[in-house]
Nucleic acid binder design. Structure first.
Length: 601
RNA sequence: GGGGUCGUAGUUCAGUUGGUUAGAAUGCCGGCCUGUCACGCCGGAGGUCGCGAGUUCGAGUCUCGUCGGCCCCGCCA
């Protein structure tokens, strides 16, 4: 009853979850793991599991005493093979199982392997601590839901490859071990034994290499590839992650958008049967910040922001000195209306204040609109002038019973806090509809970000991003006002792709470097090879990189990246199964000419 | 670097004001049972209360530290 005969001679004929009424009468060979066994004395029922699902096998003592005795010993998670005839369950159909119309009458059983009792049940319903799941990831990966996630991801990979091949893209590879360049995300470093004291960096992205492919004439490149960033982890951030990376020559922004719309559209259609619009709507960065305080707005619900800066300016001495002060200092004032219908209580509003403070706010201004448009439950109620109050009511559209939340101060902080509050209330008030997909391009990003402390500019995307043609002259006069030919793809409030048109004109590139304060020596040291390549005949080119993990997460309905990555790291970047990273021996370090000086415990 | 939260049986959790032998469900082991599919019934085993100090006559419970999981801010060109 045990051995390997089913493997060497009989071979598997079907996968468990695929059997249906049409197979009735056939003798089948199935193999898998024991999900559950139900021993009724004279009959043993076993639900056998493989990646396609479950099928019930019955071992009947009345039919075959010996096989029943063998099946009687089987336990959960044992790996077995079964030969038997598919038969109807008659009146005992289980409508909850896709295979519930049929069962296999076991005629032969082979036990490939016994199993220890698993530390947690292999079941989607079991709410096991993440720590336990990750330390026994090979068991966690047996759970049907995560298997379905990874099977969907496999299909998505296939769809991406097929779509891009159809569009004449070449799948080309780039190195993981690359030159270290400062700026941007922290790099993981790899010591070079052959070059003592020198290090490679693990690639943050294939960015420079894919541009070099364009300069080499490959015209259209793509790759589904790992990227590495040594930054802190989040629910939607892992230190190694997968990008759908592509680049195309003789292309402008719209060409990249069309390709990506096709790729994402096919992923939705073939992955989960959802049709997205052929073209995705566009929104400018400025509009996104103004209306939502975020460059990745979730358009599935309202609670839009209203900028009141101009309203405050138009009502000098309006009785809200804090608002006026913020405006006078170059800041902004924003409001958000929570309609009366949501019945947000005073206590609930009070609870928002610590939330706002948690993301940097000094406080949370609020007012409840009473009959006739007056304000109550508000620190501003007594001082605000009738004129300013009415103007704010009008600008925000706030009506009787509505609650208005305010923030004022530096624009960046106001946006951050109001965005946080909007997302928080969206969840709290159940405003986010299920099964809805809000996708859009966010375009016209600033080319540079200004650093207040050092009064310098940094590349908002990366230093090879092309400014809009009409902004090229401003590179030297007013860098802060330059807009980039850069774009992000946003789905339900998640950034799922980002890219840009690249600079192919060495003169423009020089101006950008100047604006960034990167000296010619520094340019050579960091990007010499790319500048050389630009000088040898670079085609106009543009590209984008999509976050495969995040896209998979959204399409599977998972709430964490860890549910679509087979072997993820914890928040501290550890692999609980292998316990990586670990110390290494002094001898290994010596060989690499490295000294390690971890802080003492 | 900072904030929040959690850690008790294999698992998920409960555990009162600090007070007898730390409980439940499920899983596991044994027995019975031929139509179960959350099978049922009977019986049994199973605990460094994350770890270390401290307070106390007495700590799962209070204090401090530490380790780890998760969420967030900073960070992620």
């Amino acid at each position: 009853m045990s051995g390997q005969k089913l493997i060497t001679e009989r071979k598997r004929t079907h996968r468990c979850g695929t059997l249906r009424a049409e197979h009735i009468g056939q003798e089948v060979v199935v193999m898998g793991w024991v999900q559950t066994y139900r021993d009724l004395g004279g009959a043993v029922f076993i639900d056998l599991r493989d990646r396609t699902g479950l099928v019930q096998v019955v071992f009947d003592a009345g039919v075959d005493e010996a096989i029943h005795a063998a099946a009687d010993k089987v336990r959960n998670e044992w790996v077995i093979g079964v030969v038997g005839k598919v038969r109807s369950r008659g009146t005992n159909v289980n409508s909850k199982m896709p295979t519930g119309e049929i069962e296999i009458l076991g005629a032969e059983i082979e036990i490939f392997n016994k199993a220890e009792t698993p530390p947690f049940a292999i079941d989607d319903d079991v709410d096991t601590a993440e720590e336990k799941r990750l330390s026994h990831r090979y068991l966690d990966l047996r759970r049907p839901k995560i298997q379905q996630n990874l099977m969907l991801r496999s299909r998505l990979n296939h769809v991406v490859r097929r779509t891009l091949h159809e569009l004449d893209f070449l799948e080309l590879e780039t190195p993981f071990m690359v030159k270290y360049t400062p700026g941007g995300a922290r790099n993981f470093l790899v010591p070079s034994r052959l070059n003592p004291g020198n290090f490679y960096a693990l690639a943050e992205s294939p960015q420079l290499y894919k541009q070099l492919f364009m300069m080499a004439g490959f015209d259209r490149y793509f790759q589904i590839t790992k990227c590495f960033r040594d930054e802190d982890l989040r629910q939607d951030r892992q230190p190694e992650f997968t990008q759908i990376d592509l680049e195309m020559s003789f292309a402008d922004m719209d060409d990249v958008h069309q390709v990506m719309e096709k790729v994402i559209g096919n992923m939705f259609q073939e992955g989960i049967g959802v049709s997205l619009p052929a073209k995705f709507p566009k929104m400018s960065y400025d509009e996104a910040m103004r209306r939502f305080g975020s460059d990745k707005p979730d358009l599935r619900f309202g609670l839009e922001h209203v900028v009141l800066t101009e309203v405050v300016k138009a009502h000098p001495n309006g009785g809200l000195p804090l608002f006026e002060q913020a405006v006078a200092q170059g800041g902004m004032v924003k409001a958000m209306v929570v309609p009366a219908a949501h019945q947000l209580s005073r206590t609930e509003v009070d609870k928002l204040e610590p939330e706002a403070k948690g993301v940097g706010a000094l406080g949370l201004g609020r007012a409840k609109i009473a009959e006739g448009g007056s304000w109550t439950q508000s620190p501003f109620a007594k001082t605000v002038s009738d004129g300013l109050r009415q103007a704010i009511n009008e600008a925000t559209g706030a009506k009787d019973g509505d609650i208005v939340l305010f923030q004022f101060g530096p624009a960046k902080l106001v946006h951050t806090v109001m965005n946080h509050l909007r997302l928080l209330l969206g969840k709290k008030l159940n405003l986010i509809p299920a099964n809805q997909w809000a996708i859009l391009w966010v375009v016209e990003f600033p080319l540079f970000e200004h650093d207040e402390k050092t009064n310098t500019y940094a590349a908002a995307h990366h230093p090879f991003t092309s400014p809009r043609p009409e902004d090229v002259d401003r590179l030297t006069t007013d860098p802060g006002a330059c807009r980039a030919k850069a774009y992000d793809l946003v789905l339900n409030g998640n950034e799922i792709a980002g890219g840009s048109v690249r600079i192919h004109d060495p003169n423009v590139q020089q101006k950008v470097f100047q604006a960034l304060g990167i000296s010619p020596e520094e340019q050579r040291a960091k990007f010499g090879f790319l500048l050389d390549a630009l000088a040898y005949g670079a085609p106009p080119h543009a590209g984008i990189a999509g976050g495969m993990d995040r896209i998979s997460m959204l399409l599977t309905g998972a709430t964490s990246l860890r549910d679509v990555i087979p072997f993820p790291k914890t928040q501290r970047g550890q692999d609980l199964m292998t316990s990586a990273p670990t110390p290494v021996s002094d001898r290994q370090l010596e060989e690499l000419f490295i000294k390690s000086t971890p802080p003492k415990a």
